[in-house]
Design a protein around this nucleic acid. Structure first.
Lengths: 232, 232
DNA sequence: ACCTGAACACCGTTCAAGT
DNA sequence: ACCTGAACACCGTTCAAGT
């Protein structure tokens, strides 16, 4: 058998090399880039692989599957959320500061929040986040079981609220007349069959008077409800 | 050409006829039966069609697609949710009665609640539901904008809470040792890096002392938070 | 009018084969 | 050790063709 010929000098050109080594981090960031660009529905192992110039099956050497990829993405994002160090005098405002930071960070990744609802995140960064939120709650004077439940309720509210906001924004983006359509739908509800709805149609359909007013309302309700439970 | 032969008497046997006419209602119920049996992930146009002994493409003569099917399923379920007639003296307890009924009805259909988060339902039965919940809120003395926002917040809480409960139950069903795994995971968190979490690990991992205690806590927080906003 | 059959453009995941 | 290529068992949706 003849020895293989040496590679001619121009042969290295066509094989465009991958920009970076395939790692869990690279895969995670490619997944986030995809969600940022096109939303959660577009997230597939095949398209993440495309973004890294590899075959989908190559990803399985680094992550166990789509579920783990989503967990890695959520944990990556969790790192950016700010939680203040506990100050027992200001626990209510501090919970709101955490919630606003979480809303901003999560909201920057389209409807990624939906993945957080479907797939309760438990990565290392998420543990740190929970510990820091628990610290604020523990300084509130709430009973211990209430502290534990509140650490579940508040993130659940944040995630659900951000998810619905982002779905709304995404839909508006893809279908600019969407707002007018649901507006018209509510206004078309006959007052004899839907008396209260008809009476409140302006409040139900009017845009938020300030950005995040609806989110701030939910925050006021929940933090206010917790404050009412503090034993005095 | 020869005339076609008459059908022999035994030929009608093998063509097993469909049990009922294909209608939106039949499709909706087949979808619910599938979700009840196997959960939201198993819901596909092809499998719904299988359950009705038709091809998937046949469904598109009755519903515009999977999104509309989900809307029909949610609206079908909404009909079963009880909302009391408004009594201004009891608005707080009445909101809780609605929430408990919604939890029970939604929770009976596995993780269908997830579809309600992803796909904000707006069918006719849902409109009636919103009108009736708004009626209770309108009798509370809350400001009008707060009434409108609360009619969003409360269902959002219910849906998110039921969704997470059902995902947990579903996971327990498929992986009976799941509870012990997350239990061990939380207990393994080192106290020097997660001091508050380690301190509260019993409260975080212990099962609910009574069924729905976690749901009732969220309900207390939200309804209590709303009560604190009533102008007096 | 309503359903079938085939097709199109996708999925997640596995696994033998290559290098 | 790590990636490719091919395969398996699925998706939602469209559309010409049948009855």
């Amino acid at each position: 058998m003849s020895s293989p010929l040496p590679e001619p000098p121009w042969s290295s050109v066509p094989q465009r090399r991958r920009r970076r080594q395939l790692t869990r981090e690279a895969i995670t960031e490619a997944g986030l880039a995809l969600v940022d660009a096109e939303g959660l529905d577009a997230l597939s192992m095949r398209r993440v692989a495309d973004g890294l110039d590899v075959q989908a099956s190559a990803l399985y050497g680094h992550v166990s599957g789509k579920q783990e990829l989503i967990q890695l993405m959520l944990d990556h994002v969790a790192l950016e959320i700010d939680v203040p160090d506990p100050d027992p005098e200001r626990w209510e405002e501090q919970l709101k500061e955490f919630a606003r930071s979480a809303r901003q960070v999560l909201g920057a990744h389209r409807d990624l929040a939906g993945a957080s609802l479907a797939n309760i995140p438990t990565g290392p960064n998420m543990l740190v986040l929970i510990d820091r939120v628990l610290a604020i709650l523990a300084a509130s004077g709430l009973p211990r079981q209430a502290v534990a439940y509140a650490a579940d309720l508040l993130p659940q509210f944040i995630t659900a609220a951000v998810y619905e906001e982002s779905l709304f924004l995404q839909r508006l983006e893809r279908e600019p007349e969407y707002f007018e359509r649901i507006d018209a739908y509510f206004r078309a509800a006959p007052a004899d069959r839907f008396p209260v709805l008809a009476d409140l149609v302006n409040e139900l359909t009017s845009p938020e008077e300030s950005p995040g007013a609806r989110f701030e309302f939910g925050l006021d309700v929940i933090v206010g409800g917790l404050a009412a439970m503090v034993e005095r």
